[in-house]
Amino acid sequence: MRVAIAGAGNVGNSIAKELLENGHEVLLIDRDPSRIAVEGLPTAEWLLADACEISSLDEAALQRCNVVVAATGDDKANLVVSLLAKTEYGVPRVVARINHPKNEWMFDEKWGVDVAVSTPRLLSALVEEAVSVGDLVRLLRFSQGDANLVELTLPNDTALVGTTVGEVDWPEDTALVTIIRGGRVLIPTPEEPLAALDELLFVAHVDREEELEELLSPATFAGENGERGSENE
């Protein structure tokens, strides 16, 4: 896979290092000569240029890239790079860094962004994920399809404990991606039973998150006729 990264700061370099170690081709683009550190990542390609300019992206042969990562410290630059990558060069996957949470609303498919990564939101989500049981935690937003990667730790007192994945009537537009149990990563087959304190990771449409949280809540149970109700009813 060929990946172009706009922005060769700490974030861009860290991404490039991981990708190179995984056997991918990486091109780093930055207009600041002090950031062109070839000796640090000798197996990467380097381009001293402004990634917001068409001529620079032509030189980078962006049309050959499978993924573009807009990782500069400037949200305006990241939006411009994303839009050009998608509309002018048809890059299949565009990932953009959000530096300021107030700008998050702009990072969507209209600006060519497939996946937007907000560091403040990610950090707060990881804090919530570490301490929350029974509450839905949004880990990552996907721009296309209005979907999020969400996590929920199954409470001890939910009626779903002991049922199998295939027995649960999951909401539409949600997909159980994996189950994390005691340090193990499990593939959620229909026969897999759910256990208390399982960490369930879903890709879910934003409109289905409330329904998904309600389904997994300890405040609901499945009656004999299959309808859910409240313990207080």
Rank of each mutant, 00 (worst) to 15 (best):
L20W: 04
S56K: 01
E25F: 02
G162Y: 10
V26W: 03
L212R: 07
V38S: 02
P33I: 02
G90I: 08
T43V: 08
E213S: 13
V95P: 00
N78V: 07
N66P: 04
L216S: 06
N225F: 11
L140R: 05
G145D: 09
A125N: 02
L48F: 09
P101V: 09
A175Q: 09
I180R: 11
R208T: 08
P42F: 07
L41V: 07
E151A: 15
I29W: 06
T220V: 14
E39G: 07
V161F: 01
E129Y: 12
A130G: 15
D75M: 01
D207Y: 00
I29R: 02
L41C: 08
N232L: 15
L136E: 04
A175T: 14
V203D: 03
P33Q: 02
G23Q: 03
A16Q: 06
H24G: 01
N225H: 14
H205G: 11
N66M: 11
V127M: 12
A70Y: 00
S230D: 12
S55Q: 14
G162R: 09
L27W: 02
L47W: 08
A219T: 12
E39W: 11
M106V: 10
A4K: 01
T72I: 09
D135Y: 10
E53Q: 15
V26G: 01
L140C: 04
A130D: 14
H24D: 11
L139W: 00
D173G: 01
F142H: 04
K110L: 13
H24M: 10
L176S: 03
L197I: 05
D169G: 11
I180N: 07
N99Q: 13
S34H: 08
G145Q: 06
R93K: 15
E227Q: 14
K17C: 02
I5G: 06
M106D: 00
P193L: 05
